[in-house]
Design a protein around this nucleic acid. Sequence first.
DNA 1: AACGATACGGACTGATGACTCCGTTTGTCT
DNA 2: AGACAAACGGAGTCATCAGTCCGTATCGTT
Lengths: 200, 200
Amino acid sequence: MSPPANLRADARRNRARVLEAAEAVFAAKGTGASTEEVAKAAGVGVGTVFRHFPTKQSLLEAVFLEHLRAVGDQGRALSESRPPGEAFYDFFTLVVNQASTKNALADALESTGVDPMATASDSAHQLGVLFEQMLRDGQRAGAVRDDIGVAEIKTLLIGLARAAESPVADPEAGSGALSVVLDGLRPHATARAEGERPKR
Amino acid sequence: MSPPANLRADARRNRARVLEAAEAVFAAKGTGASTEEVAKAAGVGVGTVFRHFPTKQSLLEAVFLEHLRAVGDQGRALSESRPPGEAFYDFFTLVVNQASTKNALADALESTGVDPMATASDSAHQLGVLFEQMLRDGQRAGAVRDDIGVAEIKTLLIGLARAAESPVADPEAGSGALSVVLDGLRPHATARAEGERPKR
DNA sequence: AACGATACGGACTGATGACTCCGTTTGTCT
DNA sequence: AGACAAACGGAGTCATCAGTCCGTATCGTT
């Protein structure tokens, strides 16, 4: 999408370098890292970075999209190679384990007043659809409880991903937390049926 | 702790105002909000803000501590007034619903290279202890599964809180996600017992 | 090889925001 | 009331960072 065609060889090379460097730098130092740092890491001048991504925001977006695309690919692969229940749970796990960076990016975008999901509509939407499908399949196969939808799944994913990236949380606890959630997603855990559900 | 005694009346008043304003402003506009905005909201000059909190960081810390204190108080109240299981689940719910701001603060602190929990050691530790106690009581009462500890609880809390604050997540989905987690915490959900636990 | 077009680097600009400084005000004590 | 210390306000300083500009280097084409 963004990568405009007909670029000169060096331009294309530099664009790729910048993207890669940006991903690394943002992952390491947070999205607050300066454009100059990215430029240095990519071995180019700031001018070049801004030519390819006229705004810091657009750079963040590009990195974000890249992530979404990669995650989507992995999901599709999973759903083709495994039975529905497993595919769903594995994908869920995988997304959690990878998503920390993505969340930071989404935050950064959002704080500049852009809706990251709107910006990323194509990939994000595709990802949503993919999730919906895997969820439905999992539910039809009786591996996932029926009373939840994609929205809840997304919320849980975001939450776990954020928790994982949080310096406050014990990294050891991540897998325990994940398994609590996975258990909560299984159908027989319908304990919450009658009235005693916490008020909220 | 921070509030040094022997302050002149106006000083004490202003300090309180600033703290209150800071809480509001940071909650509304994020921790990136400028000190000047806080000052304006408090109806004082920047100088005053900086006199009381010599650093933006220290202001963030103060607000953070305030939150921890408040949450702790509520938890203690709950654990005195209700049976262990309910107290635990209600406290959990309550913390999730309140914690969004706190997480943003923790992030902000952490990004300036401070360990928020170390900074807040006293209150944070107390809160940890409180949680541990409520969890143990809940487990002893058979209301919470045995194979998890405070670390996992904390991780889940952070996650849900962050998910709640995320603009990407559907706000409607928050309670659904919460109930998934609560179900996952209940003892009979021990489906994960044998080998099939997701690889991590 | 030589020439136009495309892309590059990085000094420069403008804006923003944390923090300082000091002349003025306000509280407190006698 | 008078006087002194304790606070106050907010203009000013300094650093940082996004984004521009243009002389220079590189690409691709004939």
